[in-house]
């Protein structure tokens, strides 16, 4: 008796948790198919928002910019974070405690401040107006810190003596990385890439100050608040969610089938 009650409670909690997590998403997907975005009840289905999204240049432009910022930032941040982690964990560089602290401190700086200061740096020191490049660099500051945290936590378990072994058997440092280190740590780097991509992709403050009128998805969403949220935005959000689900679905299938390996049991 008691155990079935306990089990039901567990199940109930789990369901509530999923509702909590997914209700906003489900709502957005729902609204994206409705004619009336303000009060979409009773339902009145339509695809017009998807159609106008397809025809509206500005959303395509925004998506493109957001993707560039996200991928650029993620590539830079995960590269820097991986190099820093290898220096600290593999080569035990001097002053690694201080280095770790300094790598993590950008986490505590408000994005608004990073946005404003990078804009001022651009203007006053470089004589440039804000641009995608500076947006990527500004996002990479705190994103590197996040990426570093992710990679460091994962690589604390890595046995660097495997790299030594490979070297003795004739592998140059480059080959060691390609043959041994990377295949064993790629999941950590990938995790850092995803995290920093999402952070930069969704970032509003930094893009707001650095890009001005150049649209990104968050700045479009923010801007449209002034004249009521346009429903193309809902459609766009729904599509992005779809892409994310498909992406993780494919990843899951690849891991399940053994096409891709995330982790290796200890030898």
């Amino acid at each position: 008796m008691k155990s079935t009650l306990g089990k039901r409670l567990q199940l109930g909690t789990l369901i509530l948790l999923y509702i909590f997590l997914y209700a906003p998403i489900v709502y957005i997907v729902y609204v994206s198919f409705q004619t009336n975005g303000v009060w979409p009840f009773p339902p009145d289905f339509t695809l017009e928002h998807y159609a106008s999204l397809w025809h509206d240049e500005i959303y395509r432009e925004g998506l493109k910019n957001s993707l560039i910022i996200g991928i650029g930032t993620a590539a830079l941040a995960s590269l820097l974070a991986t190099m820093a982690t290898i220096a600290i964990l593999k080569y035990h560089v001097k002053g690694r405690m201080i280095m770790t602290g300094l790598f993590l401190s950008p986490l505590f700086i408000a994005h608004v401040i990073i946005g404003i200061s990078s804009l001022m740096f651009n203007k006053n020191v470089l004589g440039l107006s804000g641009n995608i490049g500076s947006t990527i660099l500004a996002n990479a500051t705190y994103a590197t810190a996040f990426a570093f945290l992710v990679v460091l936590a994962q690589l604390a378990r890595y046995d660097w003596r495997l790299d030594d072994a490979a070297m003795v058997f004739g592998a140059t440092p480059k080959v060691v990385f390609k043959e041994i280190t990377f295949p064993l740590i790629w999941s950590a780097i990938f995790g850092a890439f995803v995290v920093s991509f999402l952070l930069a992709f969704n970032n509003l403050e930094i893009s707001f100050y650095n890009l001005g009128a150049t649209p990104t998805l968050p700045t479009l969403a923010w801007g449209s608040l002034r004249h009521g949220v346009s429903q193309e935005l809902y459609a766009l959000a729904a599509l992005i969610n779809l892409v994310v689900f498909v992406f993780f679905g494919v990843l899951y299938a690849m891991l399940k089938s053994g096409l891709l390996k995330l982790d290796y049991k200890e030898a």
Binding site: D159, R161, L162, A165, F169, E179, I180, L184, E266, A267
Partner: peptide, 12 residues
């Protein structure tokens, strides 16, 4: 050639 104490076989 070298044989290491904890084997250090490449797990992947």
């Amino acid at each position: 050639g070298m044989v290491f104490q904890d084997f250090l076989l490449f797990p992947h």
